[in-house]
């Protein structure tokens, strides 16, 4: 009996993943190259900062979404959470809470929403699609009730300036992606909880019989997603200076699209952190480029849809061949 267990990290599978990541990265670079040749305004400091800011928030949502999708679920509520938490933080600031307290309370509310999703799935036995769809509409409603349909403006300069400022030439918002992305990577690839996310997504029964806390893992995934979303809610409130329950409409779909473009499988158990990040910035680049090229913004939606089909189709081909 022959053993071919060479002690190398570059196994076929991992090489494929690296290859896929590189392909996405190359696609992003090609888009940038084409746009800088086609327009004068693309490759300017101002536009690049703008692009990074645009992509950052979806990127953070996509990271949270990816945890959920790896377990075989879906979180439709993230856009609503962004709008809702922007209202919460604006309300708290308007009522004289210090910035640090407002941030902590808002993130805490994110935790509660995520736990509620876990509760609905694990305890009530609802499909993830349904429970997160329900919170999507309810949270928008509660946000509107709190604001009475209006927006709450934020006149706290340190809070609103944060999103406009740079650190060493890099927009703060993009730094936030790094701040979320690195721990997320360590969590997913270097902690046992990351392994459990994959195992639950692959086969919950087998995981359970191997002693994995399946329910806890599901709670964890949805909580992380909701916390990421409430963090984005803070960033958005800071960027636009108001709290408005109807903001971030459709962002859940952009987050899911970014994640899927980044190689996450909606069947679960396949996904990474770098993939969704690249996916989010590819989408941001397309939108940005289309604006600069004066493409009708309605066409942008069509292009995004076609792109999702093409990229995911090629990913499926690659998987099937193995």
């Amino acid at each position: 009996m022959s053993l071919e267990t060479k002690d190398t990290g570059t196994t076929p599978k991992r090489r494929f993943n690296v290859l896929f990541g590189l392909t996405l990265f190359a696609l992003l670079l090609v888009l940038w190259l084409v746009l800088s040749l086609a327009t004068d305004s693309f490759w300017t400091g101002n536009n690049i900062s703008n692009l990074l800011r645009q992509g950052s928030m979806i990127a953070i949502l996509a990271i949270g979404q990816t945890f959920v999708i790896i377990t075989g679920g879906i979180d439709l509520s993230v856009g609503a959470i962004v709008g809702f938490t922007s209202v919460i933080v604006a309300w708290l600031l308007a009522h004289g809470f210090p910035v640090w307290a407002a941030i902590l309370i808002t993130l805490g509310i994110g935790v509660c929403i995520g736990l509620f999703h876990g509760f609905g799935i694990v305890r009530l036995g609802l499909p993830p699609f349904i429970i997160t769809l329900a919170t999507l509409t309810s949270l928008r409603g509660i946000g509107l009730l709190i604001t009475n349909g209006n927006t709450i403006s934020i006149d706290n300069d340190p809070f609103t300036e944060f999103s406009r400022n740079d650190f060493a030439g890099v927009p703060n918002l993009f730094l936030m992606v790094v701040l979320v992305g690195i721990p997320a990577y360590i969590f997913l690839s270097h902690s046992r909880w990351g392994r459990y996310l994959f195992s639950v997504g692959s086969n919950a029964e087998a995981s359970r019989l191997s002693g994995v806390n399946v329910k806890g893992t599901i709670y964890l995934a949805y909580t992380l997603s909701a916390v990421c979303a409430s963090f984005v809610g803070l960033l958005l409130a800071s960027r636009i200076g108001v709290g408005n329950a109807m903001q971030a409409e459709g962002w859940e779909l952009q987050a899911i699209a970014s994640s899927v473009i980044g190689g996450t499988s909606l069947f679960g158990a396949v996904g990474s952190i770098h993939g969704p990040l690249l996916g989010a910035f590819i989408l941001a680049t397309i939108n940005n480029g289309a604006n600069l090229l004066n493409v009708n913004s309605f066409w942008q939606r069509v292009i995004t849809g076609v792109l999702i089909i093409v990229i995911v189709y090629f990913d499926q081909l690659r998987r099937r061949r193995r």
């Binding site: 392994r195 994959f198 692959s202």
Partner: peptide
């Protein structure tokens, strides 16, 4: 009940 088929051998062995 026994395996996470889509995942690596090592993850299955160490679960």
């Amino acid at each position: 009940q026994g395996l996470c088929l889509s995942l690596p051998v090592s993850l299955n062995l160490n679960l």
